[in-house]
């Protein structure tokens, strides 16, 4: 039996060897930094960089969580998510339904509708930044002239940046909804048609309920996407204006604490908060992936 055992040991060795590169990257750049947040959160950085951080226990966590800037950041984030996700999902669904028919030229419409998937946040920011510019943009022509200018305006800055995110999310939303529509069982739709269901009834009574897992998946993916976006805020509004325009979403606060205030302790606390919120959504997303595991039969 010794040959058998050595064969098995060789297989183990090979397996660990194959996993090693990925595990090494994960250990150094995912798990270690993630876990270190819990330590960093307990240390306060002095106001002057260069001095050593000192242990303050949960004091810093408490003070960050109690601060008005954190509350405002949380409110901004939630508002942002609420503005981006439903609009993006419904827009994507409408486009997908309109494009769900084999008619001439549909391939081009599909390509156009999914195109925003590939646009980066920087591209979107520059493009929309121009359109929203108070001088060269379209707003004066449309008769919209808020004062201060829209991206410096405490009321309008957040809706403006979420509009950019909606546009960007539209492509992904369309792709997800189209895949969902294509996976619907034809027989059910045909049966409903034979039962005399008209277009509208059919959509609300048959298509949408059948599509609900897809809608839910889109909701989860969209929410994660929205929580993780901050590029357009950084480019269009910038650290000086973000707080007073109420656009300092959680992730932007993390970025600012790190790179503007040079304060890893505060960034760590905010990261943990962000992780906790995202955890709920990623767990749900994992459920979707796991469902594929069971389908694959292992």
């Amino acid at each position: 039996m010794s040959a058998l055992r050595s064969r098995r040991h060789r297989e183990w060795g090979l397996a660990y060897l194959l996993l090693a590169p990925a595990l090494l990257v994960f250990a150094v750049f995912t798990f270690y930094p993630f876990l270190r947040n819990f330590k960093l959160a307990l240390y306060q950085n002095p106001p002057y960089p260069g001095l050593p951080a000192h242990y303050v226990g949960l004091h810093q966590v408490g003070s960050v969580l109690a601060s008005t800037s954190f509350h405002q950041s949380l409110v901004s984030t939630l508002l942002y998510v609420v503005m981006v996700v439903p609009v993006g999902l419904i827009g994507g669904l409408l486009l997908a339904v309109a494009a769900h028919k084999a008619i001439r030229g549909m391939a081009w419409f599909r390509l156009i509708f999914s195109s925003t998937v590939v646009t980066s946040v920087a591209v979107a920011a520059v493009v929309f930044g121009t359109l929203m510019d108070p001088v060269v943009g379209l707003l004066p022509w449309l008769g919209i002239n808020p004062h201060p200018a829209i991206l410096e305006n405490p009321t309008w800055a957040l809706p403006a940046v979420s509009l950019i995110a909606v546009w960007q999310f539209l492509g992904l939303s369309f792709v997800i909804m189209t895949a969902g529509l294509q996976s619907l069982p034809d027989e059910v739709l045909e049966a409903a048609r034979l039962d005399g269901a008209g277009g509208w009834t059919m959509f609300w009574r048959v298509t949408v309920p059948l599509l609900s897992p897809t809608l839910f998946f889109g909701l989860v993916v969209g929410t994660i996407y929205a929580f993780q976006s901050f590029g357009q805020i950084d480019i269009l509004i910038g650290p000086q204006n973000s707080q007073f325009t109420h656009t300092d979403v959680l992730l932007y606060s993390v970025y600012q604490a790190l790179s503007i205030q040079d304060n890893p302790g505060v960034a760590a606390v905010l990261s943990i908060v962000l992780f906790t919120i995202l955890l709920v959504f990623t767990l749900v997303q994992l459920r979707f992936l796991e469902r594929r595991v069971t389908y694959a039969g292992n």
Partner: peptide, 28 residues
């Protein structure tokens, strides 16, 4: 391949999906 801790290690891989890169930047 079959090897000890296969299940655990697979969960470890899946766990990386739960940690967004943004929350690791401070230490990274």
């Amino acid at each position: 391949l079959e090897f000890p801790l296969k299940r655990t290690l697979f969960v470890v891989f899946l766990m990386t999906l739960m940690i967004p890169f943004e929350v690791t930047i401070a230490t990274n």
